[in-house]
Write a protein that binds this DNA or RNA. Structure first.
Length: 152
DNA sequence: GCCAACGTTGGC
DNA sequence: GCCAACGTTGGC
């Protein structure tokens, strides 16, 4: 069992959107970074814990708890020439981009970036590092437990 | 909308 | 395989 933080722009898919989806489950489309892809493809297991993070918005922070709901499979948007995530170099025979399904479990109060920075146990979180842009990052067990405690 | 950080691209 | 140019991310 591993833990992850996954960024989503709430204008695209918020925690409310995910909870409202069929089965509270959404495909994590649009990841176009190899490191983030590799986490999904190589390391995620069904049942892994997910911190659902709202980014590029007025109040960035952790907005809910989710879990990994599938193993990795090709992101269909890479094949769709009408999609902003279209990748002309990807083919169905050799897809480039993979995704997992994510099941939202509950909305939490917003744990803001500022609040996270103020918690010493979270000081080493990748999301808090300067210049961090990765949309999917591993979360240490002690960080996960600390955050769940904060949100309870 | 600014801009620092950093990933990707492509000429050499 | 180096590295400058360029594009993107994402907090502010």
């Amino acid at each position: 069992m591993q833990y992850w933080l996954m960024k989503s722009e709430p204008d695209e898919v918020s925690i409310d959107d995910a909870l409202a989806a069929a089965g509270s489950t959404v495909p994590w489309t649009g990841v176009r970074n190899y490191q983030a892809r590799n986490f999904m493809r190589d390391q995620m297991r069904v049942g892994d814990g997910v911190l659902f993070y709202h980014s590029s918005c007025a109040e960035p922070g952790i907005a809910g708890i989710a879990e990994v709901a599938s193993t990795a499979y090709p992101d269909p948007t890479q094949f769709d020439s009408g999609s902003p995530y279209f990748d002309p170099k990807a083919t169905r025979e050799t897809p480039r981009w993979m995704l997992v399904d994510v099941r939202a479990l509950r909305k939490t109060r917003l744990l803001t970036l500022d609040q996270m920075r103020a918690i010493p146990e979270l000081a080493d979180m990748q999301i808090l590092r300067r210049g961090n842009r990765l949309s999917i990052t591993p979360v240490a067990r002690h960080e996960w437990e600390c955050i769940l405690q904060q949100l309870s």
